[in-house]
Design a protein around this nucleic acid. Structure first.
Lengths: 150, 150
DNA sequence: TAACCAACGTTGGTGCGTCCAACGTATCAC
DNA sequence: GTGATACGTTGGACGCACCAACGTTGGTTA
């Protein structure tokens, strides 16, 4: 893949937030291309993966689990339901809620997209040794951990 | 700042591209808030910083220097010119081109936004030691370097 | 029981960053 | 001179993230 990095401003080349942004943009491009093969996007994968891993949930809970706004969950679930990857059923115990469950087809798509994601990691981290990959993962995890507990 | 990290899908918690995306999103939020104080956005900063560091250039060259599409450069330069931060003048040597130069005010705004960016780095990297910050920067640089030379 | 507040799904809209296609104009290489 | 290329510009698209508001339903408290 052709990835032409911006040349400047030179000062940004050593600015962590810029490097982070660039690396994430590149990773996102790889991921996006991989997902395009399934004609789905990031939101769909997050939802399918969450359903596969943690089971059925209301839309609001799904949104919280995946870090997606309630309103965006609606649209994504519409897409997934339209393709039979997910089932939306009213919750008899609480009529405000819809219970979303993955279908067999949905679980299969989640599995294949997961493979795509795994392949992308290898592409992305190709220049780093195993130790360095762990280092990077650890540093990023620490960063996020810290900022999520304000 | 309140940053509520998504809970799941659990598998993503250790996926580098996901961590990268999350960290970049958070950094972008910090940067965006800082820039909002100047009523400007990322594109504007990149352009102003590039002009300050590497001097005047045509819009196309600016786009290449900053990694911004030509068409997006047009709009951003319109904004900057409208605020007197930048001057757009036809290039006498090549009538296809506009030469964009930073004004004094533009240079000053670039400087102040640069300070904002520096402050954000400190916020962002707060949980990491000096050594770890250098490590992170090095790893990300290696990553980008590798992928930009395909 | 009635009043109130909170949570749910949904609609519609905003913003930023990125990218692409197409046009008319100007320049360069042959 | 002709054809390819670069330029600025317009107008549009997409993905992700976010917000305000509404009607409906549920829980809490007076």
């Amino acid at each position: 893949m052709e990835f032409t990095a911006p040349q400047s401003p030179a000062g940004l080349h050593t600015t962590p937030s810029w490097l982070l942004n660039q690396a994430a943009t590149y990773a996102g491009r790889l991921i996006g291309e991989g997902f395009a093969a399934h004609d789905l996007r990031g939101y769909h994968y997050r939802l399918l993966a969450s359903l596969a891993e943690d089971g059925p949930a209301s839309q609001a809970d799904l949104g919280r689990r995946c870090g997606i706004d309630r309103s965006d969950v609606v649209a994504a679930i519409n897409d997934l339901a339209g393709r039979g990857l997910v089932v939306r059923a009213p919750d008899p115990a609480d009529r405000r809620r819809n219970v979303i469950s993955s279908t067999e087809a949905g679980a299969e798509v989640a599995r294949r997209m997961g493979e795509t994601v795994a392949r992308v990691q290898d592409d992305l981290l190709a220049p780093l040794s195993t130790t360095e990959r762990a280092q990077l993962t650890r540093l990023l995890t620490r960063l996020l951990e810290h900022h999520s507990r304000h």
